[in-house]
């Protein structure tokens, strides 16, 4: 759905590496998790806890809660508000969250 602009400003490039569902992706320092996932071509972030229908970010400004993912073992984090960190493990969230993670 998205690609990076070809000539970014004063850039170090995609210097951060993280994993999404076990697959390595690269991100730019300063990316949010949602931005990095969109740039990497992830088109499903979660399925809903009600009917398990697929969802991806809708608002990217913290109000819609459709970008909820599990980050480093903690479920239901808003991917659009969390900055990427080296070594982060992101999982798409299927249905209801499991208590305890």
């Amino acid at each position: 759905m998205f690609k990076r602009l070809s000539k970014p400003r004063g850039e170090t490039g995609e210097a951060v590496s993280l994993k999404v569902d076990g697959k390595p992706i690269r991100a730019r320092a300063g990316d949010t998790v949602a931005g990095a996932m969109l740039a990497a071509g992830v088109d499903r972030f979660r399925t809903t806890p009600v009917t398990e229908s697929p969802r991806a970010p809708y608002c990217l400004m913290g109000v819609c809660f459709d970008c909820l993912v599990t980050i480093d073992g903690v479920g239901s984090r808003q991917a659009c508000l969390v900055p990427v960190r080296e070594g982060m493990a992101v999982e798409t969230q299927i249905g209801k969250r499991e208590a305890g993670r």
Partner: peptide
């Protein structure tokens, strides 16, 4: 169909353009 992945607000596209330099493809 507004809940389908691939449907976003215009503001969302603007947010990733400004903050992350992402541009829609396809």
């Amino acid at each position: 169909g507004w809940t389908l992945p691939g449907v976003m607000t215009a503001g969302a596209a603007q947010t990733v353009l400004k903050a992350q330099g992402l541009v829609p493809t396809g």
